[in-house]
């Protein structure tokens, strides 16, 4: 079976792939914050694990800090998990701002809590990085004191700490007209 035109296609494709690779490597070498190419080095820096990176920056908090926040109101807790997970069980007093539905819940939250409010974001725990995404978005929206609880729901539950069920309190309020 004749295969017309495949040689020129393959030639252009190879040229493109090659130039792209070279360009990428050159740009990376030259730019100020290029990516280190060693996988081991990256892993060590915590560059591949957003949670580890934040903890390294001092933005992680331990269970004890979350307990204090809950008891004394020193920080507001934000649950980054999907709404169904939140409603099935969450840390007492936590508000729901799901990573996969940030907009409306955040708007409700923003109206109540000013940018200086201390926040602690959590998600499932373990390998979950949804809390990082919500944290980054909160920072981008102007919140200045946002920390992470890496242990998340899993650690909290296993430690037998206080939990509650049900919908997000802010979503239940009727609009005032």
């Amino acid at each position: 079976m004749a295969l017309p035109h495949w040689k020129p296609r393959l030639r252009s494709a190879a040229l493109l792939a090659l130039s792209g690779s070279v360009l990428g490597l050159v740009v990376n070498a030259v730019r100020p914050h290029g990516l280190p190419l060693g996988y081991a080095a990256l892993k060590q820096q915590g560059a591949l694990d957003p949670v580890k990176r934040l903890v390294g920056e001092g933005k992680g908090v331990a269970l004890a800090t979350v307990q204090t926040a809950m008891r004394e109101g020193t920080a507001i807790l934000v649950d980054a998990r999907p709404r169904q997970d939140y409603e099935a069980g969450h840390l007492v007093g936590a508000f729901s701002i799901p990573f996969n539905d940030f907009g409306a819940p955040f708007e409700r939250f923003r109206r109540v809590f000013p940018r200086e409010t201390s926040l602690i974001v959590y998600c499932g725990g373990g390998t979950c990085t949804d809390s990082v995404e919500v944290l980054d978005k909160l920072l981008a929206q102007g919140y200045v004191d946002v920390k992470l609880f890496p242990g998340g729901w899993e650690e909290w539950r296993k430690a037998g700490q206080p939990q509650e069920k049900g919908p997000d309190p802010l979503s239940q309020q009727k609009e005032q007209h």
């Binding site: 493109l16 990428g24 892993k43």
Partner: peptide, 19 residues
């Protein structure tokens, strides 16, 4: 394979751009 991850991250986007 882990060693290829950073290389892919650096080259793939430029290949996409050129294409």
């Amino acid at each position: 394979p882990p060693t290829l991850v950073p290389l892919a991250a650096v080259t793939l986007p430029w290949i996409e751009l050129l294409a």
